[in-house]
Design a binder for these strands. Sequence first.
DNA 1: TTGTAGGCGTTATCAC
DNA 2: GTGATAACGCCTACAA
Lengths: 333, 333
Amino acid sequence: MNIYDIAELAGVSIATVSRVVNDSPRVSEKTKMKVRAVMEENNYTPNVFARGLGLDSMQTIGIICPDVADMYMANAVACLEHRLRGYGYDCILYCSGYQQKKKENAVDLIMKKRIDALVLVGSTYADVGTAGSGCEYIRKASAKIPVFLINGEVEGDNIYCVYSQDEQAAYEAVSELIASGRQRILFLTDSDTYSVMKKMAGYERALKENGLPVLGELKLCLKNQIQYVRDILLSRRTLVFDSVLATDDGLAVGAVKYAHAKGLSIPEDLAVIGYNNSEYAICCEPELTSVDNTGEKLCSMTIDNLMKVVKGEKIPAKIPVECTLVKRCTTDF
Amino acid sequence: MNIYDIAELAGVSIATVSRVVNDSPRVSEKTKMKVRAVMEENNYTPNVFARGLGLDSMQTIGIICPDVADMYMANAVACLEHRLRGYGYDCILYCSGYQQKKKENAVDLIMKKRIDALVLVGSTYADVGTAGSGCEYIRKASAKIPVFLINGEVEGDNIYCVYSQDEQAAYEAVSELIASGRQRILFLTDSDTYSVMKKMAGYERALKENGLPVLGELKLCLKNQIQYVRDILLSRRTLVFDSVLATDDGLAVGAVKYAHAKGLSIPEDLAVIGYNNSEYAICCEPELTSVDNTGEKLCSMTIDNLMKVVKGEKIPAKIPVECTLVKRCTTDF
DNA sequence: TTGTAGGCGTTATCAC
DNA sequence: GTGATAACGCCTACAA
């Protein structure tokens, strides 16, 4: 059932049917009704491929993230998808993994689908951080369509970034730890992405401003797996620390488990701060104090901006968003 | 840059270019090389809309789930997406929510994109369970393209279901509880979907076979939110139970938190079994015994079958998959 | 092995 | 207000 069939059944031309489909004002109410009736009857749906061919758009946005199974990304994708629907857009999802080659491949492949814009979720898509991160593939994509980074930062025309102020958030978290008497604060992470660099910078700034030394032994980069973190901490018998700032809630839970295993009480003997304010934080016993990087806000802002750009409006290329520290039971301030 | 441009630059006809693009054997190696060189030089990419129009396919699969922010679905979507990529397919994601109207709308909208097949994730897409669940919208979709349900079950032509054997899994879990001396087993759930019905049936069968009564007071349906579950259980002061079978790990964690709050020791005073073997299970303290419903297996089987159907092969309409009980620290068997 | 021409189902630009 | 008709870019018989 195509536009010709409808036209014939309704006794009009395909041009008129097309106008009705697109709700053009240049059609009389009478014929509009008539055509609509025929369309209903035959439950006609315009062919999106043909329409795409003509308009060079299928109202589709590409979303790439390293891994949707990750809770943070899953939340982000859920939020993005929901908001895009609100604007009548569909989304194509691509999980790229974290390797440079795979990320490039992902962008390459998704671009072939002639999406209207591209959203990249996560700080793995950033100019700095991980060693040797070329972001040319992102700039290349931005030559064709607008690219939006969530929690990433890449310089370039037609590239727009919304990111949380991780430096400041880490600074404030560590400052509170110090103010409550902590001296040896373990910085626990699982990668060296852009956002981790920012968190570390905030951590160091707080130490320095309070006259505390920045010690290499108090920075640990581990695989993000609860038992693994616990076991590694248990095995580092000479490592002394009275508190932890983790760059992810999963790592923080590992630290909490370590405390349990070692018989330390929380927060008295060990204070722990996580990051992302995920469901881990509430699942954890005791419940985890965690930095909320307002993922939903980042996502909804991004989509709102995306729609503006698609409509030709101008928006700022970089928008930092504040984090908030959600205090629960693993800290005593 | 379209097929005509390439043809002209390479000094051949568009038909030849098309053949090269599709790697047809009916082209000489020489011209193949020549055309490929020109394509590379101009980094030509065939227009997927035009191709879609001709072939009536854009190699795209639709995935609908109620909510990707849910860990179980996020894992499923990650797995589906990954496997689809392996076959060269893209996927469009739609989060439908749990309401009937929204689910119908989701299927309607995604069908307009002329996807090659539809995958529905979650037992909310099932014929039975939730009251008044009409599944006509699913059968309607299956008239046009094959539909694949993961953990759902709907009768109909061109509908294929892969689901975990929840009745059996619940039966076995409860049997083990009983064998280890538990008498009052709380069935904790958050909905009345098809999979919950199956789990409850297994729970009841185990009770009956062991001569224990099926008590309404020992079936609780609560909002799936850890603190909420804990608080409700704390408030039910007259409710006596020595163990819990939860239909989701989140609920189980709530039960564990309840035990902590009440000073009960786990598993001595209270044994707890969760469901899905999610990250909650490992995050929980003590770590949660949980039924693993092998989500990844369901997903990869589904996609493998999907590809077979797309290629015209026959596959069974219903495939049950066994669950396994992962024993950890909240049970003493 | 290669080229020609028609079709896929729209949208848009003209006339009327 | 409505109707022809030419794009849009590709695939694929059918011819050569």
